[in-house]
Every structure is written in C-alpha cells, then in structure tokens.
Design a protein around this nucleic acid. Sequence first.
DNA 1: CTGTTAGCGCGTTCAA
DNA 2: TTGAACGCGCTAACAG
Lengths: 340, 340
Amino acid sequence: MTNNRQSIKKATISDVAKLAKTGKTSVSRYLNGEFGILSATLKERIEQAIKELNYRPNQMARSLKKGQTKLIALILADITNPYSVEVMKGLEAACQDNGYTLLVCNINKEKAKEKYFLQLLMDYNVDGVIIHALRTQDSILRDLPFPVVLVDRRMSDLGYDIVGLDNIQATTLASNYLIDSGFEAIIFITESLTGVGTRQERVNTFKKIVKQQKGIVGEVVEIEDMNQQTELLDQHIVSFCQKCRGMRKAIVTVNGSVTLHVSLALKRLNIIWGKDIGLLSFDDPVWASVAGVGITTLRQPTYKIGYSSFEMLHRRMQGDHSEAKEYLYPGELIIRDSTN
Amino acid sequence: MTNNRQSIKKATISDVAKLAKTGKTSVSRYLNGEFGILSATLKERIEQAIKELNYRPNQMARSLKKGQTKLIALILADITNPYSVEVMKGLEAACQDNGYTLLVCNINKEKAKEKYFLQLLMDYNVDGVIIHALRTQDSILRDLPFPVVLVDRRMSDLGYDIVGLDNIQATTLASNYLIDSGFEAIIFITESLTGVGTRQERVNTFKKIVKQQKGIVGEVVEIEDMNQQTELLDQHIVSFCQKCRGMRKAIVTVNGSVTLHVSLALKRLNIIWGKDIGLLSFDDPVWASVAGVGITTLRQPTYKIGYSSFEMLHRRMQGDHSEAKEYLYPGELIIRDSTN
DNA sequence: CTGTTAGCGCGTTCAA
DNA sequence: TTGAACGCGCTAACAG
C-alpha cells in the first residue's frame, strides 16, 4: 500500500456553487450563517451539495481575505517544564472553547529563537500571542502587530497585560508556614535572577519576611546554571548546614526544576528531607509525593492561569484598548512530610 | 499605555515593487532566491526597499498560492506525558532545521478531539501530520489529504510509516536483566491494552520470555483506568506478594505514568522498592533517581524518535510513494538501586 | 533580464 | 433574495 495520496482534491466553494446551481456568494453566506437572506430551497440545495462533496472551507483563503487567522500562539521558554505544560492545557481548552487553534512555540532556552518565532508569527498573521518566560529586551517586542499577554511578569513594562501567580501572597504563605512550623534557619535556593521577575519577587518577599522575624536566619543562594554547577550547589547546602548546626533547618526552592536539582544534591550528600532538613518547593511536580517522604509544595492554579490568559487576549483581539491589567491568582500550600 | 496597536500596517509585495520602481514579479523572484535572473542593480534596489519598509512576505498568501503551508502537525494523546514531550522536542528541532513550523494538537485523551483536530488540520492545509497515540478507528484516517507518520504503532495497519521503540528488543533486555539479577517472580503492570499496540507488544514479549524460563513466575495485570482504580491496583500488588512469598519479587511497569501510580501504591502499602521488591520502569522519568532509592528504567531514544519521524514525513511530503516502512530504535537500560 | 497577467479560495461590495 | 465582479498578497506562465 502506498502512502501520500494527494490525489484526493478538495472541493472549493465554486464546486459547491456549481453543484447547487447558484453563485459563490450564496454559499459564502450559508457558510457564515447568514440564513436570514437565504430562501429555504436554496439553503437546502447548498446543504446537500456541501455534504455530497464533503466540502470544508479553506482556512488559508479565509484568513487571507478576512485578515484574521483564528490562530493564536504560545511562546514558552522550555516545554520540558511541567508548569508550562499545565498552563498550556488551560490555554488550549480556552482556545477550543472559542474556536481558536493554538500554535506552540518552544524557545528551548535558546535566545536566538525568541526573535525567530516572533517573526514567524508575524509572517503567519496570528491573531494574538501569549508569552511565557521570554527574556529578550529586543526592540522587536515593542509595536508588535498583534495583542500580547504575558504569563508571569518577566520583563520591564511594555504595557502588556499580565497573568500569573500572586508571588507576594504565595511567598508569604510559604515562609510563614515554615516559621510557624518551628524552622529557624531557612535557605532559599534559586536559579538565575537576571531578567526573571517572578523569581525576583519571590526572593524579595522571602527576604523581607525573614528580616521581620527575630531569631530566624534567612539566606538566599542564586546559582546561574543548575545543570553545570552541581558542586557549587552541594557546597552551599553543606556550608548552610554547618553554619546553622543545632537549628531546625529548611530549604525553599524557587521552582520545580530547582527542586529536582536540590533533591539530587541532598541524595548525594546523604541528607534526608523530612528528617535532617525541611524542604518546600514552589510548583507542585507530579513526583512530589513519591520523592522520599514526600515534598511540601506551593501549588499554582496553572490551569486557571492558562485559561484566563486567553480571556485577556481575547478581549484585546476584539478591540479593547484600555489600560494594561494584571491578574494575579493565589497559590495553595500542599503539605507533605518534608516539613513536619 | 494602551495595548493592541494594529495600527502598524504591514507592507505588501506591491509596496516593495513600487518603492523599488519595478514589478511584483521581480520582487517575488528576489524573495525566492532566483538571483540568476536579476540584474545586480535591480537586486540592490529591491534589497533596499525591503529593508526600508521592513517587509516580510505574508505566509498565508504564499500558502494559498503554492498549495503548501510549511506547517506540520503533531497530534498526541496527552501532553502531560513527558515521553511525548521529549519526542516533541526532537521533532521541533527537525522542523526548524528544515523551515517548517510545528502545530501541536493535544487530544487530551478525549476521543472526540481526534476527529476535531484532523478536520482542523485539513482546513488549514498542513503539509503533513505526525500522529502519536491515536486510537480512533474512524474511517477518516484512511485517505487523508496529507502524508502521515505514526510514532509508536497504535492501530491496525493503515499503510503509514512507523517510528518508535523496538519493543521486542527493549522488553527482552529488561526481562533478561531481571532474571539474571535473580528475580524469581515478576509482575508486569499495564494500563488498558485495547488498541494500544505498543503496550501489547511489551506484554506479549514479556510473557514469551518468562514462559521460556523454568522456575520463573510471570504475571500480567491490566488495569483500565489507573486514576480511578487505585484499590484494585493495591489488591493486585498485595496478592502477588502473598502468592510469591519467599521468592525474590519484582514489578515491571509499562510506562512512566504507570510507574508513578505504582510508586504511590507501594508507598501506601509501605512496601519499599529496592528492599522488599524490585522495580523496573519503561520510560525514564526525570524523577526516577529521586524516588526512594532510585528506579531502574528502560530509556527510549525519544529525541531521535521525534527527529526521525520528521525525516520520514519529509520524504513523503516530497513525493516518495514507496512502501510504508518501520523504523525501530533500541532502548537502553538505566540501572539504579530499585533492582539491586 | 523584466513586467504584465491570471489565478489560488474566499468574502464583500454593488447592482439586479 | 440573488449573483457578478473585484481584490486579499502572492507566484507562475507568458510575453517582451
């Protein structure tokens, strides 16, 4: 059997018109639901012809004509990140609910691709774009020909709408929980902070809270590249443990990826979370409950974030030119045995 | 500051032609790299005009005219599955290397969406489609207007190319490893087998190997819905342990998702892998090394699978009508402490 | 080497 | 109520 049978030519609107013995215009009207101006019999004939030819309108032609493609795009830094995938699922649902198709663009952490995709999306005339975790400061980000919504604040203000976690609320919740649970020394471990507003907010809030509490030791460690600098990570953990000997210690990780790296480090160092040290993670990876005794996490309403980012975009696509807004959702603490 | 400034009208090929004082044809030739037929001065003028207007060709118009969109699509059952995401990354890289854009369609395990997406892709005239884990037996799958490549064999033979893991090699490798390591009773746990060729192949190979070995107890458990039937899973594990009391026991899980469920079950039952029972998982989830003592896995060459699925598709898109082929890649055993 | 012309499939005047 | 004709932005056939 042979593959690739382009032989099946698709019927066009003209074919339908011919078969229904009418003009393309009426068919077009039928397609667009303007039934008020169609006689019952014509409508019937067209219906019949469409079914017979198995006709489906060509979206490309339609897009060209109407100037809107019903395509929207999601640009994300790293599709390996489960958080991003969750957001994507919410977004996807919203798209389908509204007749839009989602184009997923994975930057894959390669800076060059940011521009590449933005250009591409302009070339394809997408109706709108949702950007998650973009870092470029390129001027291309100004005056884009389509509306943009940002998931998580990541760059200097460009006047775009923002949807994301309420980092202040979430960090406060997590920090206070640890303190109330009797932890006396807390180290906050993060990846590169440059250009990533989300992480900055978490770090800053953490610092502020710790400072307000007397007798609590708070420390922040920033490691540029977790994949490369494993020894550095190990060293920081070790020296933290030594410095705070005798105190109840805990680690907070800024996101799921860091949590994985820290878990690996603790295994290497033979430090057991839930027993030798506390552990609390932003994001709620699926494996959080099977990793050792389980890891306490701060879960984000990812699905909702994805879904409502579409809603904001949709408003813009329909011509809403009002001031840029921020929609921040609260996080939820999922308590497991790493912090008991 | 206001968002959504569609005000910036994009320049068209006519604008460029006018500014360069020439016809659209020459501009088009320039765009398509046919420099052999362009005088140096004209080329120069066009180049200048394009830069000045910041012109970029409209892909929609181009697609309409040429009948090819440079769009290909990936249809997958569940984007939450890390295996699928890995495949996607390979595919994505291949697309970019060849100037194609990838459309990701997530079925999300909702059967109705399979047809929906296939229709959609026809409407958008994509050049080709890669299908991962589709289950429909709908006639729509025959005579599609674009070439198709299947990742993992999942349905009755439709004459499409197939790329995936060599399940026989992989299962043999895994099973023999367990037997050689001294395990005497092995239970193979899988999700629903109906319509999923990949899982069937793994199960069948497992059965065959176990039967050949004297003194080895082999058992297969199929659980339809892992999310709903957690008690059932627990029961099966418990009864297996009772039945095979005194023997060295191991569990094999058919994929990463099942591994997660089984890990959770073992935690509930307070059975410790690597000590009370062996555990070996198809797929290699990122968390395999932080779950308890670590989980031995059978890693698939996911990236390569994704990349080469594009290559096969590409050949078809260029008109190769030869017989459908199968490309199967071997798996690799990653040994951790769950099977020592 | 270059420009004019005719569509690709569809939506939208405008006149009947 | 209906349909003919034009054009969206681009490429290709055909003349020059």
